[in-house]
Design a binder for these strands. Structure first.
Length: 121
DNA sequence: GACCTGACGCCCC
DNA sequence: AGGGGCGCCAGGT
């Protein structure tokens, strides 16, 4: 065999994984937020860390991906420093009616939802 | 190739 | 009840 088998369907480390994360993120409605872990659980693929890794790459796709609606488990805006300006994430959320205080969503129980399942969207 | 560093989160004090 | 340890998995050095 002259060449190695080019098939490497790892699903992870491929653009396919990025696309899945972007697709799920796009499902989050205005005024709601979700978490890195919830996305990882929903996909049953990768980990919360990898969702952050994928989201970090979302600039290559489109600005249409509402990455500002993804926060950490405690509701903290842990990704705010990766936006064009450090306040952009908070600005967008507040514009959608999500109250932020000290870089944190004030009422996660309201905005994240009681059942914490993306499938509900 | 070992080691560190993350847009994280569970477990255990 | 808040803080530290550690697994996670890809990239960079």
């Amino acid at each position: 065999m002259p060449i190695k088998n080019p098939v490497s369907d790892k699903d992870l480390n491929s653009d396919h994984y990025f696309q899945k994360v972007f697709d799920v993120t796009s499902l989050i409605p205005v005024g709601r937020v979700t978490t890195y872990g919830a996305i990882a659980d929903f996909l049953a693929l990768g980990s919360a860390r990898m969702v952050g890794w994928a989201l970090n790459n979302c600039h290559s796709q489109d600005d249409k991906i509402p990455a500002h609606r993804v926060v950490n488990r405690l509701g903290e805006l842990s990704g705010r420093n990766h936006f064009a300006t450090p306040t952009l994430m908070q600005d967008r959320l507040e514009k959608e009616g999500v109250l932020i205080k000290d870089d944190k969503v004030v009422k996660m129980d309201v905005h994240f939802g009681i059942r914490r399942e993306i499938a509900d969207y």
